[in-house]
Design a protein around this nucleic acid. Structure first.
Length: 430
RNA sequence: GGAGAGAUGGCUGAGUGGUCGAAAGCAACGCUUUGCUAAAGCGUCGUACCUCAAAAGGGUACCGAGGGUUCGAAUCCCUCUCUCUCCGCCA
């Protein structure tokens, strides 16, 4: 949510920012609703003030007196007008709020203006994709892949895009989670295990509602949403709370499964591990002082880049252009790893600064040095999403016989240097 | 799922229909006194919105949430949520 005063007073800037993001909002309609809202509030409050004044007067009158009785009769009329006017107020406030919640955050001045992903700017690269050669296979073509990532039985049990990870792949997932959580803990992110369902208030606060309603799985009977990312429960952990200045910055990390309907996405991008309805991810979240959020974003991005570096995966960091950043985002970096088999970049992390947009919706504030209450800035980033990391590890690390060499940092977690391991019986076929 | 108890400002805690945004205490902040500390005295001490060019000022709302009764609700009624105790059920 934008600051209402800012919105009113800088309509041109708002219009310009939204246009850069390629969102469509009828700002004039919202402004008209706001004007109507203020008018209705004013009327309702005047009536109510009159009612309260009469109330004070009546408190001092003898209860049984004629004057009292006639005052009651007089006030009955006012009471019904108050009721009508308050109903109007509630109605207009709801309509205004719904419209205002649909206004996206504005892109920061450092965000390149652009229309499509073509306009994103590569700001960092690491590793050499060419060094991995031409012979690498897409991960789904590894000879044992279908046994360890069982898409077929997943489809039987649940549906397409809901695989079972078996044996060494399940173990690799667990190793990666443990590795990521340990690395994040070392960077002073407090580990959390949040609920993986949230209510509508939470989904609205972080901006999934109303913008991405169709992307979430819903439990209608209980009014709950399966989380598309741990960002939602973790950011909402501090909803409606006010920090002391000394509390900031706050940092948290969480592993959760993530659920995405991915409505309308079919085709070549969805093969293998590329795009799933359920996947595992470790997310990091920061709540910071507004003056520090853009620095904090760079630190966040650097932290995730370091993680990718430890995994030995070639990656590049994109500064997302205005047309490609999300609804609540002010600035966003996407980190992509090179998958040598598919010969393409896979997005494995998105690091974002939401400025005060989420904090305003979530009512997360702090008391500044002058004792005034202000909204914090929220940030988050994937650190990291598993399936595409696994895809890249498989594609970049396999030898001619299909054995995948794992980066050294994972050896202690996986308890081995490579997979699949022939001993142990975890890869048996029927 | 069943029975009961509860939810008031940063905290503790009064308040059971009117002059209550809410006593009192604690904490915090400012000032005064004292050689420092401590203590004492005095004062300040919520948030949001509306109004105002702005500040000052004024107004409205908020006593877990939402409805209702009433001229008037923190207070009465209903529904819901959460916490605690007990029972049941379960991992």
């Amino acid at each position: 949510m934008l600051d209402l005063k800012f919105f009113r007073e800088n309509l041109d800037l708002v219009r310009e920012g939204i246009a850069k993001k390629k969102f469509a909002c009828d700002l004039d309609a919202i402004l008209a609703l706001d004007a109507e809202r203020r008018e209705v509030i004013h009327e309702a409050e005047s009536l109510r003030a009159a009612q309260k004044a009469a109330n004070t007067e009546m408190a001092a009158m003898p209860k049984g007196s004629d004057a009292f009785r006639s005052k009651v009769a007089e006030m009955k009329d006012l009471a019904s007008r108050v009721k009508t006017q308050q109903a109007r107020q509630t109605d207009i406030e709801h309509r205004w709020k719904a419209a205002f919640l649909a206004v996206p955050n504005l892109p920061h001045s450092s965000v390149p203006v652009g229309r499509t992903e073509e306009d994103n700017v590569v700001v960092a690269t690491s590793g050499d994709p060419a060094a991995l050669g031409e012979a690498q296979l897409p991960h789904w073509d590894l000879p044992w892949f279908a046994d360890l990532v069982d898409l077929g039985r997943g489809a039987k049990v649940t549906g397409a895009g809901w695989p079972f990870l078996i044996g060494d792949m399940a173990r690799l997932a667990r190793a990666l989670l443990q590795f990521f959580l340990d690395e994040n803990a070392a960077a002073e992110f407090t580990e959390m295990m949040p609920p993986i369902c949230v209510n509508a208030d939470s989904a609205t606060a972080t901006g999934q509602l109303p913008d991405k309603e169709g992307q979430m799985y819903v439990v209608p009977e209980d009014g709950l949403y399966l989380i598309p990312t741990a960002e939602v429960p973790v950011t909402n952990y501090y909803r409606d709370e006010t920090f002391a200045l000394s509390d900031l910055p706050k940092r948290a990390c969480a592993y959760t499964p993530c659920f995405r309907r991915e409505a309308g996405s079919h085709g070549k991008d969805v093969r293998g591990l590329n795009r799933l309805h359920q996947f595992d991810k470790v997310e990091i979240v920061k709540w910071v002082h507004p003056d520090e959020s853009f620095e904090a974003l760079e630190a966040l991005r650097t932290h995730v880049e370091a993680l990718l570096g430890k995994l030995g995966l070639p990656f590049r960091t994109l500064l997302m252009c205005s047309g490609d950043i999300g609804f609540p985002h002010a600035k966003q970096y996407d980190l992509e790893v090179w998958a040598a088999g598919q010969k393409r970049w896979l997005e494995v992390s998105s690091c974002s600064n939401f400025t005060d947009f989420q904090a305003r919706r979530a009512n997360i504030r702090f008391r500044d040095a002058g004792g005034r209450v202000q909204f914090v800035h929220t940030l988050n980033g994937s650190a990291l999403a598993l399936p595409r990391i696994m895809a890249a590890l498989l594609e970049n690390g396999h030898t001619a016989d299909g054995l995948v060499q794992l980066p050294e940092c994972l050896h202690p977690y996986f308890r081995g240097p490579s997979l699949p391991r022939v001993e142990g019986g975890t890869t048996t076929r029927e």
